[in-house]
Design a protein around this nucleic acid. Structure first.
Lengths: 219, 219
DNA sequence: TCCTAGACTTAACGCTGTTAAGTTTCGGAG
DNA sequence: CTCCGAAACTTAACAGCGTTAAGTCTAGGA
């Protein structure tokens, strides 16, 4: 009976081999360096064997990114316990930046290269579920901050607020990644720098400290 | 006598043909779509002819980006006339975002893909000259804002301030570019969105309105 | 008239992702 | 036990890429 299941299990083994070999290449040298032939050589199969397990090269690398991004989701799940939405937003910002800097090639592929409209059905990640989808998490937190009246009254749109803070942190991350070795920009220490970015973003959206609602400059 | 100059002139013509053909491909379809063979076909030369005018494919595309980026520099030169550094920073932010959205492929190549340490001698752009180098422009403006005491006292580092606002706007631009068609993020109208990003960044770095120096929360 | 320098082409190399066709292996049915 | 069919895998190839070595052709200068 269990014959079929054994076959499935064996196939799963090869699939995992492929993913592990591809991941090693990917984290070390990035998308371009991952070659069907190199993966094949690493696992001692022929290049075409990979196509029995994945539709194409993109599918291989998407599988890697999907599984690895669940680790970020796990960290977010912890952060979700923070009650204060502002503190939560800050914590998420740090976690996001830290994750990105630790997995630069994953990050680059997922957030810095354009893709054909991602078909959600073939991904593990559940869109809109804030335990799996980082954007949904930020959106949820922004909505809560608005509801508690913590933000400036113009910022009544959670989607907009989420996009603002996401942009700031993503901008910091991606500039660091692509321009880290440029001689014409003097990067400050990573910790100090990301702290400043998060601090400025939060202050920028926050309702001013003890300034009564009516007293705002229009400039 | 003028024979040599004529030869030089003729060579320049071919060089320009190459650049024009390559630019057309580049703006329409991006780096990957620019192929030595396609350029060659467009100008009715053999692919190898291109190598008589450019070291390699990268050199062709760098030449395009360099010349086109001088247009951004021209806009910045106008903005340099704005006296108030805060207003100048805002104006530069809008100009930067506008330029990026109008030349997405240029922008992607220059700011969203990693390069081997750029050798400055073979580029037209003069690093550190704020009339040609956009980063130098922002740096200069940030330094002036600090000097005039317009920013929060912790932000006494022009380089850091420049990086913060650059990150925010670059983040907005690059997210828009790569994730513009994602169904899971509801982008707000471009104008409203970039205005919010710039507004939040500026408010985040600005000394609070009429809050005396001693009264800041440490949280 | 001959020579040389430069512009250009042809043919090729080694690499890529991908596919059509062929081989090998093996559990299950007759 | 034999045969079949399906699944796993390989070999060989295609079309494309950037790049280069070698050869051709043209025209100005001696």
């Amino acid at each position: 009976m269990g014959m079929k299941e054994r076959r499935v299990r064996e196939k799963e083994v090869v699939r995992t081999k492929i993913l592990d070999a591809a991941r090693a290449l990917f984290v070390a040298e990035g998308y371009e360096a991952v070659t069907m032939r190199k993966i094949a050589a690493a696992i001692e199969y022929s290049p075409t064997a990979i196509y029995l397990h994945f539709r194409d090269k993109e599918a291989v690398i998407n599988a890697i990114c999907d599984t690895d991004f669940l680790k970020l989701a796990a960290r977010f799940r912890k952060i979700a316990e923070v009650a204060d939405p502002i503190a939560r937003l800050k914590a998420a910002g740090f976690a996001y930046a830290d994750f990105a800097m630790r997995h630069p090639n994953h990050y680059r592929l997922m957030f810095m290269t354009p893709h054909p409209p991602h078909s959600p059905d073939e991904s593990v990640i559940e869109v809109g579920n804030r335990d799996q989808d980082a954007y949904a998490f930020v959106l949820w937190t922004a909505a809560e901050a608005i509801e508690l009246g913590l933000l400036r009254p113009e910022l009544d749109d959670a989607e907009l607020v989420a996009q603002i803070v996401w942009a700031a942190i993503h901008g910091w991350v991606s500039l660091r990644m692509t321009k880290c070795n440029e001689p014409w920009v003097a990067w400050r220490p990573q910790k100090r720098s990301i702290e400043a970015v998060i601090d400025v973003s939060i202050r920028g959206i926050l309702r001013g400290p003890a300034v009564s609602a009516g007293r705002k400059l229009k400039a």
